Amino acid sequence: MSELETYQITGEYQSGSNVLGLVCFSIVLGITLGKMGDKSRPLQDFFHALSEAMMIITGWVIWLSPLGVFFLVTAKIMEIDSFKELVGRLGLYFMTVLLGLFLHGFGTLSILFILATKKLPCRYIAKMGQVMATAFGTASSSATMPITIGCCDDMGLDPRITRFVIPIGATINMDGTALYEAVAAIFIAQLRKVEMSFGKIIAVSVTATAASIGAAGIPQAGLVTMVMVLDTVNLPAEDVSIILAVDWLLDRFRTTINVVCDALGAIIVTSLSQGDIDKTRAANNERDGRSDAPSHELTEIEKGDH
Rank of each mutant, 00 (worst) to 15 (best):
F70A: 15
L29W: 09
T10H: 06
I27K: 03
Y93W: 07
F47E: 03
P121I: 01
S51E: 11
F83S: 11
G30Q: 06
S82E: 07
L92K: 06
Y124L: 08
G107V: 00
Y13G: 10
Q8S: 13
F25I: 13
V28D: 04
I31Q: 06
E85I: 07
G59H: 02
L20G: 12
I57T: 09
R89G: 11
G91C: 02
L64C: 04
A116H: 04
L33D: 07
H104G: 00
L115M: 12
E5L: 13
G11H: 10
T117K: 02
Y13H: 15
M78F: 09
L109K: 00
K76S: 08
S40Y: 05
G107L: 00
M95E: 00
T6E: 04
Y13K: 14
S82I: 00
I9M: 12
F113H: 11
L43Q: 05
A75T: 08
L115P: 04
L120F: 02
I27P: 01
L33I: 12
Q130C: 07
V73L: 06
Q14H: 07
L120K: 08
L64T: 10
V28C: 06
M36Q: 10
C122A: 11
G59Y: 00
D81K: 15
I77V: 06
G129H: 01
M128N: 03
V23Y: 14
E5C: 10
D45K: 14
Y13V: 14
M36V: 11
T6W: 01
S26T: 13
F70L: 14
Y7W: 15
G59F: 07
T96V: 06
Q8P: 02
G21R: 04
K127G: 11
K76G: 06
V28E: 01
W63P: 00
V28Y: 04
I111K: 04
H48I: 15
D45H: 13
I111W: 10
Y93S: 09
T134C: 09
G91M: 05
F106S: 02
V131F: 02
V97H: 01
K119T: 05
V131E: 01
V23F: 13
Y124C: 05
D81A: 06
S17E: 11
G21W: 04
F46V: 14
L92A: 13
L120E: 03
R41I: 12
V97M: 03
A126T: 05
V69I: 15
E85T: 08
F71N: 11
S2I: 02
F25E: 05
